[in-house]
Design a protein around this nucleic acid. Structure first.
Lengths: 343, 343
DNA sequence: CTGTTAGCGCGTTCAA
DNA sequence: TTGAACGCGCTAACAG
């Protein structure tokens, strides 16, 4: 391996001068510079990052904690994070945690061990205290999900408002018997969307029916969505609309309706969330809330680098805009009746 | 930051002893050991990996090059890689290359710079010479795609055989006018599947019709699959079966058939590839080749670690088993005619 | 503008 | 079984 010492010797200068040349950290004479440059090219020298990082006590690596890479929602965020870091010369170390607190803290230990300079958390550490212990010592930003009681930097959409948007849209369509397929997980997004569901009902004086609240699996699986929708639709007084908190769940619900001989949206309106799943591959296209996933990742990365470079402790909490996209799985009750009567 | 020196001082021993204790690299007295252990716990000491890696000239980090994290096929492989490395104490550095040679070599430079000890390549570096230059100096394994002219370690399925399996199945069903939706990319998997398509035709004395070979976008997009299928199905003499080299493409083809008023599989048989996309969400469920994605990633990681630990240069080339899964998008020609006549 | 010197935290001689 | 001393490759003081 060629080292800075080899370069210095060959160029007839000191290692300090080569170092200055490499980093632009001090003045270097024009001809000295070109001499060094020539030697570097000839020797094909590359600085040893292991040594440099050690010396500078920084790794230029950031940690990404993600429950699950195969979930397209996370994959898209991840994409935004990774690309942004790449553009800025950072490397991304990825850990999949499967929502396992032990794995989460083991991954976060990479901060303590100095293998990474900062971290982006893409889902909730169940234990708030461990988050706190790391976030107080290292730059950490929470992406998409976050610990509501903390005021650490975070980037997400306004899940409560998005939930309200969906519900008000459904109610505006004339629906009164509205169910929701939420999830067993304890993510803040899940809580806020459920809260919005309840509040929207209340603000419209619609009585909350506990049987209309179904909890699908933690990872929003298609099959659990389908199963829950089947239950909901089998109720003595079934809902006329179902607010699903993910697209996969909505896809499952559409499938359930289909198998029960129900037509969407004529017999049942269904909404999704995220708009990263295959919402527009087959009819009926899913009405959903679009999240700016790539941007969510990008902004998180940008925010983290900001924290990395300046030690100001102004804690940003960024909300990115979501958008209700009305497609083919929702219809007004009035219109529905009309449609039904024409058959 | 507490260092090994602090621990040594507090425990009243030398740093060498602490180091030996930490690494089990030499004898340490029983009571000395317990004394050190106590201090480590009390001081909450963690070895600085920056220093350790520098000293050992290894990073315990491996590089993963992936064209695109949002493609579920890659995401599943990635999952297998990351989890396996995690279990073995390695960290995974991820680079998305977007099939851009410049980005690929920039990522691979992390090897030269010593930020990573080895690499897993998940898609083809267009330039073979750069692959060669890295693979000859560092442990590198190719996963899923590979450079056929090289004999470096790699893990994949037997794409040629898989293609043959699909084609023989289709031909066995009575199909003669079989089209393929391949891709514009230059991946080895694409080449081999196309080769299998042609060879299967030849071995059954079916004339190859160039108009039956369609090239979809590099990334197997749903829309390009749909567009190509629309063209194919609009031919004067349309195919009775379409062999798509990815599930997304097959989904697109099904959608195209649907919009043209054709019924799958009554009017047209369609096959996919990979079985990671949404092949079983909506009817008709896709007949496809299942790839063991997670296992592909896992085996690649295992193989790489093997190279990392022993410097034997036996180059493994591993083929993992694939499986033809017959579902609802394929039917025999005879059966089809029968079905058709009953309408 | 340039060189000398010191040291980051750790692992590894080698001598005791 | 233990400790003193050295150095990995690089950067940052400081002196010239």
């Amino acid at each position: 391996m060629t080292t800075i010492k080899d370069v210095a010797r060959e160029a007839g200068v000191s290692v300090a001068t080569v170092s200055r040349f490499l980093n632009g950290s001090g003045p270097v004479g024009a001809d000295t510079a070109s001499k060094i440059e020539a030697v570097i090219l000839r020797l094909n020298y590359t600085p040893n990052l292991l040594a440099r990082n050690f010396r500078r006590n920084e790794s230029h690596v950031i940690l990404i904690l993600c429950p699950n890479v195969t979930n397209p929602y996370y994959a898209h965020i991840l994409s935004g994070i990774v690309e942004t870091f790449y553009e800025h010369g950072y490397s991304a170390l990825i850990y999949t945690t499967a929502d396992n607190p032990k794995r989460e803290s083991e991954a976060l230990d990479m901060l303590t061990k100095r293998r990474a300079d900062g971290a982006i958390l893409m889902a909730g550490t169940t234990d708030e205290s461990v988050l706190l212990s790391f976030a107080s010592r290292f730059p950490v930003v929470q992406c998409s999900e976050y610990e509501p009681s903390s005021d650490f930097p975070r980037v997400s959409i306004d899940n409560y408002q998005a939930g309200l948007d969906v519900m008000r849209f459904l109610i505006g369509l004339g629906h009164r018997r509205i169910a929701t397929i939420s999830s067993e997980n304890h993510y803040i997004s899940t809580k806020l969307r459920l809260q919005a569901y309840q509040d929207a009902l209340r603000e419209n004086s619609i009585m909350l029916d506990e049987r209309y609240i179904a909890l699908a699996s933690k990872d929003y699986s298609f099959h659990s969505g389908k199963a829950k929708a089947t239950e909901l639709l089998g109720l003595a007084q079934p809902p006329t609309a179902i607010f699903c908190i993910s697209d996969t769940l909505a896809l499952g619900a559409v499938s359930a309706a289909d198998e029960m001989g129900l037509q969407v949206p004529r017999d049942i309106s269904i909404t999704g969330f995220d708009d990263v799943e295959h919402t527009t591959m087959f009819h009926p296209f899913i009405t959903t809330i679009a999240q700016p996933c790539y941007e969510l990742g990008k902004r998180s990365a940008l925010l983290l680098m900001e924290k990395l470079n300046q030690t100001t402790s102004n804690h940003h909490q960024i909300f990115l805009a979501h958008q209700l996209i009305v497609r083919e799985t929702t219809a007004g009750l009035g219109h529905l009746d009309q449609t039904a009567s024409t058959i």
